[in-house]
Amino acid sequence: MDTTQLLKGVLDLAVLAVLRHEDGYGYDILRRLREAGLEEVGDASVYGTLRRLFAAGLLTTYVVPSESGPHRKYYSLNAAGRDQLTRSGKLWRSFATTMDALLDERGMAA
């Protein structure tokens, strides 16, 4: 099992999380994820996830014209997105705690 496999399950949550405090455009979101330590995340994964979250009604978009480069499409969390983030975040916390406990019991080093 590598990080890519794990990412598939939690990329939604990660994207929602990095948009919690600040809206972002596609490449910006990718950069935030990588800076947060998810080095292996791919552009297509982030773009696809954004499309899916948008289609699910968890994100809203707006376009910001740029003078130097191309227009940027910003994504921001809406109310449904924030709800989802809260629920998924709790689920992940509980899941991660369970997994930590499981590994701790068996003496696995962090």
């Binding site: 598939k8 990329l11 552009d43 696809g48």
Partner: peptide
Amino acid sequence: ERLGTPEAYAAELRAAAG
């Protein structure tokens, strides 16, 4: 160079977008 081949990109996009 940055994103890989379009086909690989499409495969990743397909998976990520479910």
